[in-house]
């Protein structure tokens, strides 16, 4: 990759961030607030002390105006140094809602020329402030965070993908074991998720990863839905092939021919309400796998064996 490509990627990342980050995540919350009872001279002293060039004027967090260095200088020229700041401030205040996206702020700060935007909540109360400085600082921090996340994933992938080169034997295989609890609907899919991630880190062809993910997820749902004891998923990864077994000691299957018919289902109503149990699971698994074998007998549990050939030319 050339340096030029990197720059383009980073710019895209900034664009992505400004559309996905909310103002409340980039604003400064320790806002210096000017009280309406202060005089122009008080404000001048405050700005000097705090090294700021402007501040919102607010009473009990309700914004009544905004005052900048330009307003102060003009007031001094007009001999109004000891007048209340409310006579010198700008009363038309451009504010931004705390849950709007950063892109909105970037537009006001960059193109419309505002130097600071008070941030308000839905009741119009002042909750923070954004300036070009706070914006850039937080975007840089976030880019750094997502950069680190990417780098960490690259490192995992690098380590995992070399396992078959680094560990030498006549026939190396990596065995992953997952325990699947029955009727635990909210955790169903976690094993499949981990298997998908493992294969991605092993740099298996993405099309094959997708087929495996679909098959193993259907198999995992079968364990969750149809067994009363849960089961186990075993994934045996070799250089050229992947063997997966979903094993349970549940009630077993009465008629193996029947369960392989697309549309045949014994799933209870509540499972169907959740979008499963349409009788397509085994048909899906069969379609995506290179080999499928289903062994079961009533009372003797069920074993589903799958094989996927791994294409290492890619």
């Amino acid at each position: 990759m050339t340096h030029g490509d990197m720059t383009v990627q980073e710019i895209t990342k900034v664009q992505e961030l400004i559309y996905t980050t909310r103002v409340e995540d980039v604003m400064a919350t320790d806002v210096i607030i000017v009280d309406p009872s202060m005089t122009v001279a008080d404000v001048r002293a405050l700005m000097k002390e705090k090294h700021i060039s402007g501040a919102p004027v607010a009473e009990n967090r309700k914004i009544v105006g905004i005052v900048t260095m330009t307003d102060i200088i003009r007031a001094m020229e007009e001999g109004m140094l000891y007048e209340p700041v409310t006579t010198a401030m700008t009363t038309q205040v451009k504010t931004v809602l705390k849950d709007s996206v950063v892109a909105e702020v970037a537009n006001s700060l960059g193109i419309k020329g505002f130097s600071r935007l008070p941030v308000v909540d839905h009741d119009g109360m002042l909750v923070g402030i954004v300036t070009t400085g706070t914006l850039i600082k937080s975007l840089l921090r976030q880019m750094d965070r997502s950069f680190q996340k990417n780098e960490a994933e690259k490192l995992h992938t690098y380590r995992a993908s070399h396992i078959f080169q680094d560990i030498v034997s006549d026939d190396t295989s990596l065995l992953l074991r997952f325990v699947v609890d029955d009727k635990d609907f909210s955790n169903a899919g976690k094993a499949s998720s981990m298997i998908k991630r493992a294969l991605q880190r092993l740099v298996v062809n993405p099309q094959i990863v997708r087929r495996v993910a679909v098959a193993v997820y259907e198999a995992e749902m079968n364990l969750v839905i149809h067994t009363d004891v849960g089961g186990e998923i075993l994934v045996d990864i070799r250089k050229d092939k992947l063997s997966i077994s979903a094993v349970d000691h549940g009630p077993g299957i009465k008629d193996l021919k029947q369960v392989l018919q697309p549309g045949y289902s014994t799933a209870p109503e509540w499972i169907r309400d959740m979008g499963f149990g349409a009788g397509m699971g085994l048909a899906n698994i069969k379609r995506v796998s290179d080999m499928m074998k289903l062994i079961s007998e009533p009372g003797g549990g069920t074993r589903l064996d799958l094989v996927f050939n791994l294409d290492h030319s890619q």
Binding site: S186, G189, S192, A213, G275
Partner: peptide
Amino acid sequence: AGMALLTGLTNPQVVRTAEMAG
């Protein structure tokens, strides 16, 4: 992969399914 999925279901398995299907 990349498809927008419209659905009337809201349980977490919808998200899992999307993950598996890319």
